Amino acid sequence: MATKHSIEPLPALVALRVASQEMFPRFIAGEYVLYEETDDAAPGDEVVLVMHDGSTKIRKLIERTDGRVRVAMYSPNSTATFNASGIAAIHPVVGCRRAPELASLGFVPENVSR
């Protein structure tokens, strides 16, 4: 007897240009982090924080509670706590690529600017 399986649609991948050295040596300014537009980030993941003011931050998620989000950056090695109300979304980073590599992944300039 055959079993039915459903396939969930894959989340959209977005590329975000790394603008600073705050996550060096993991991410280097000028590279692009690829992230999924899901809310499945867990402590220990590198994430993209999308703030309500439209800005973005690349950080490592340490802890997430109802009211606060604690994150780390590597350079300088430090932590910060944000009020969850200031964060629109937290997306897990799934990779990092240089600009020339993005074309082979199917990204065009509209996909990599934010």
Rank of each mutant, 00 (worst) to 15 (best):
E46M: 06
I58Q: 10
E101D: 15
I7F: 10
Y74F: 13
L61Q: 12
G86I: 00
D45C: 02
A72C: 03
T65N: 03
R64Y: 01
R17D: 05
G95I: 12
L102G: 12
L34I: 14
Q21T: 13
S104T: 09
R59H: 07
V112M: 14
F82Y: 15
H52M: 08
R59N: 10
A103N: 04
L13N: 03
E22R: 14
I7P: 00
E37R: 15
K60W: 10
S20W: 06
P92C: 07
F107K: 01
S6C: 04
A84G: 00
L102A: 12
R17L: 11
G86F: 09
L16A: 05
G30L: 09
Y32V: 01
M51T: 02
G54F: 01
F27L: 05
R114I: 08
Y74L: 15
V93N: 06
G54V: 07
E22V: 05
T56A: 13
T81A: 07
A29T: 13
M51F: 15
V47E: 10
T3W: 00
E63L: 14
G95T: 12
P92E: 09
R59W: 00
M23Y: 09
I62Y: 08
F24S: 11
K60N: 11
L105N: 01
G67Q: 13
E63W: 06
S55T: 15
E101G: 09
D40C: 02
G86Q: 10
Y32E: 02
T3R: 08
T81F: 11
S85L: 11
A41Q: 04
G86K: 02
N77W: 00
S113N: 09
R97Y: 10
G30D: 08
V93A: 06
G54D: 07
D45F: 05
F24G: 00
G54N: 09
E31T: 13
I90V: 14
D66R: 13
N77A: 14
D45G: 00
E101T: 00
L13F: 03
T38C: 04
A2V: 08
L102F: 02
R70M: 14
T79E: 14
